[in-house]
Design a protein around this nucleic acid. Sequence first.
DNA 1: AACATTTAATGAAGCTAATTCAATATCTGC
DNA 2: GCAGATATTGAATTAGCTTCATTAAATGTT
Lengths: 246, 246
Amino acid sequence: MAGSRQRRTVQRMPAEKRVSDIMRAARAVLAEHGAHESFISEVAERAGVVEGSLYRFFSSKRDLIEKVAEDWYEEMLTDYSAHLDGVRGTRNRLRFIIHHHLSIIKKEPALARMVFQEFRPARNYRSTRLFTLNQAYTQRIAEIVKAAIRDGEFSGDFPPAFVRDMIFGGIEHRVWAFLRSEGDFDVGQTANVVTDFVCRALSVAESEPVDRVTAALSRIEAVADRLEGAAEAGASKVRGKPGLKT
Amino acid sequence: MAGSRQRRTVQRMPAEKRVSDIMRAARAVLAEHGAHESFISEVAERAGVVEGSLYRFFSSKRDLIEKVAEDWYEEMLTDYSAHLDGVRGTRNRLRFIIHHHLSIIKKEPALARMVFQEFRPARNYRSTRLFTLNQAYTQRIAEIVKAAIRDGEFSGDFPPAFVRDMIFGGIEHRVWAFLRSEGDFDVGQTANVVTDFVCRALSVAESEPVDRVTAALSRIEAVADRLEGAAEAGASKVRGKPGLKT
DNA sequence: AACATTTAATGAAGCTAATTCAATATCTGC
DNA sequence: GCAGATATTGAATTAGCTTCATTAAATGTT
């Protein structure tokens, strides 16, 4: 006790527990300080291990941060896909995803920022597990757009991947001030305006209502024809022949 | 010459020249390696000074990089505003800016990436000279949108600042793969699709559909007349049989 | 229960790249 | 040509990530 030579009794934990301890600590530190200002010394201390020990489980600081990000992504994606399946209608489905994305950013600004800033720009991003996860996430947008185009609801002028970029890019730009702690944003309102913007851009020209009027008119005219015919027939006793049109 | 003690004769340059030398070297190194992988040792060597000397002119590595970015921004903005003034029509003006932005990214990917990744996310971004420069740059979009709304060309449903975010955010997302050297993009084609998307979202519905509705209404009224006539005729003559189908 | 083996965990040492600073060489004015 | 001022140097310092030889907890063996 008197000597500094005293080595604290140390527990040998199962690797699993150690890893989860470290990752929990890392996530807390990252959420507090962001990637650049987070030091593994602090992570180690909070996790109750010594700096060097981290390297038994993670090959580098970056590897650790990446695993934390992956973990977070997987957590986010849980239930997301199932919930989306329960939402009907193109517009509602788009809004659901946009809203979900904004909620995530609002809840975990530091982690979101870290992904935007550290991982997505990295040279090897496309060979990253994070990329795969992200792709599964954003893919749903493309599916929705594709389906809407097939159903004639959306114009086919814009590739689904492009629409996806406009949505996620637009959202990201919109929330940067918040991510910098220099501003705020309202999740619901932002979701509305983004959704409106996209639907306005994609919706097949307003000809739709016009077409419906025209179609209804055609039916009315057909009825009028028949009525006239019937009336005439009735007038001339027997000359009836109703020319049907669809 | 034989001894290593020989100190190379050194020129005392005017500060201005030194600064510009260092900045030129820094820009080249940054364009080659990006911010993280650029070392001031390399910058110093290329600029023909010793590492420590950089700190006479720049307070830190970050300060140097920031100055380089500012310099680049100012260079970009030169003539941009004047050229824009020569472009007429909302759509053309929007496309000009979008095209200009894409061109810059294409020409200087490393610097663009650096700004996106390093500076915009920084906590104090809004108090940065770079922010001011960028604002002057993007402000033009808001002006154009505002004017178009005033002229009834664009719907007023979307705040100009929001439109600006959608445009620059969408562009940025679209070009990330290129910035990572993992893909490419076509400036002209991308400018077109982005411009189309935005104009589609904002354009007030053309008057044509309205005219068509009016025309359709005239027809409906005519049909109503006929129906009334037919009904009267049928009623007075015989009790007609209305074999209606959907 | 003593001993041997394995390996988790340690903590000090090493490395790289940024930053500081006392010493020095060049410039300028007299 | 001298003195003071200051630009430039290069060695020393610092910070934070990473490595590794050493230590000791766990496990197996007789």
